[in-house]
Structures are given as structure tokens and as C-alpha cells.
Amino acid sequence: MGKLLSHRLAVPVVIALLVVALSFAMPSNFYYRVAALVWISALAVIGLNLLMGYAGQVSLGHAGFFGIGAYAVAVLPAQFGLHPLVAALAGAVATAAIAFLVGRPILRLKGHYLAVATLGFGILIAMTISNEAWLTGGPDGMPVERLTLFGWRVRGADTWYWISGGLLVIGAWIACNLVASPTGRALRALHDSEVAARVAGIDVARAKLTVFVISAVYASVAGSTLALVNGFVTPDKANFLHSIELVTMVVLGGMGSILGSLAGAAILVVLPQVLTGFHDYEHMILGLIMMVIMIVLRAGIVPSLAAFFQGRRNK
């Protein structure tokens, strides 16, 4: 069993099964929409988890990349008549280029300094989006052209459920492969000790930059998808609070765990919907649940539970 789970196809297969299984339990389009939002958030969180959980580098500006992806599918079709898919691709390429340029100097920093530098970068993107109203619609946001594929207009929460679910499975599959590759091993090595990794012949700067660019592209693709699902973008998805939300999802679900990314995203997207019944106490209860999770399951939901069951089996 343990061996089966550690296979690098296990996690994407589990996620694929979950996507298919949950689709049978959906009472209405509203549930499809919430689930689609979970898949999209999870995609961005997997990317960030590669950076935080595996390489041990923090980013407080990932919403900036998310925003670039989201605004690419809003602005490019509206201004230049590009197809939304081409726009999403262009957004991903632009994100990769920006992450590459920004990452080189920023990733030389460590710890708090790195956190502050990424934070500054994220705020810069959010401010640009808010201020260039002629292009982005400013703080009020702008509409996104609906996606059409071969003359078929993509719409409906259930359709997006499958599309975003598919993207999540692909994202998880790529992430699992990356983790199992030499780059993945290099990342874990530098997470434990940069000096040791360097002594072992790993090009630390290059490994960090690679994973930074990859995780930025994850955020960008998730941003593009969300913009297409919503048909509307606002700058709040690029702002600091959303960056924090993504980091919280990573930590809550479990650093260095792909399934943990999904669990973290699921909790932070689904709980607010469940808790609306509590009205004024909603935020208090949400905060309380998050605190309890972090106190009881210190390593995050999935790694802590996995360790717990592993321990029981070994007894």
C-alpha cells in the first residue's frame, strides 16, 4: 500500500478519482462552482508549494503572478482580439519571463529579506493593475470575453468543473514528476542546507530560479482559468491579501505535500461557504478552525494525518 502511494502517478490518479467521484455528489451548479474554485486555487497552491515546501523559499507576492494570468485573458482579447487560450498562453510566457527577471536578484535574498522583496513585487503588480485604468479598468475591474472552442461557447459551472479539474490533475502530475526528478532532489537538498547542497555540486541559484519560474507559471495559469470562469476580473485577486491566502493554504494543507495543497485550498474555499449561516460569527469561527488545525496538526493537514496513520500501522 505504502509503495503504491509513493509512486509518482499515485497523487494525480487520486485527484482524478476525487474529481470524478465528487461529480456524482453535486446537487446543483452552485456546488460545481465551489468545487471548480477549489480546483483552481489548488492549482496555484501546488505551484507555491513547490517553492515553499520543496525548495524552502517563501513568496508573499504570488498573487501578482496570479493577477498577470488573470489580466492577460482579460486585456489581450479586448485590446488585440487574441483568442483567450492564446492570451492565457501569452500570460504564462510573460509570467515566466517576469519571474525569471525578478527571480535572479530576489532569490539571492534569504528568509525575511526574501519575504519582503516578494511582497514588494506583488504590491507593485497590484498597484499597476489598479492604476492603469485605461488598460485594466482600474479598481472596478474589467469583463473577460467568454471562451469559445471550435464554435462551442464554454459556459456553465459544471463545464468549468471538468476543465479546472483536468487542469489540476495535469498540474499535480507535472509537480509530482518534478519532485521525483533530479531537480526535485536538488530542491530538497537545498531546503535542508544550502551549503551542503552546494558542496554536493548543485547549482543552487539555478535550481531556485527554475522552481520560482515554474511556480509563477502555475499561479498565472490558475489566474487565467479563474478569470475565464468568472467572466470578470478585479484587482483584488492580485493583491497582498490573496498572496497571504495562498501561503495560508500551503501551510494549512501541509508544506511539501501535493495533496496537502488540495486540502488547504478546499478548506479555505469551502469553509466560508459553509459558515455563512453564522453571519457575524463567520470570521471568528473560520479563524478558530484554522488555529485549531495548526495547533493539532502542526505539519499541516495531510503530512500530519499521514504521519499519524503511519505511526499506528507501525505499532
Binding site: N29, F30, A157, L226, N230, V233, D236, K237, Q273
Partner: peptide, 9 residues
Amino acid sequence: ANKARTFAT
């Protein structure tokens, strides 16, 4: 806006 969209649905 994203939350509002979800609540609208």
C-alpha cells in the same frame, strides 16, 4: 468580486 460571483450562483 470572486466571492460575490459564487454567492450569486
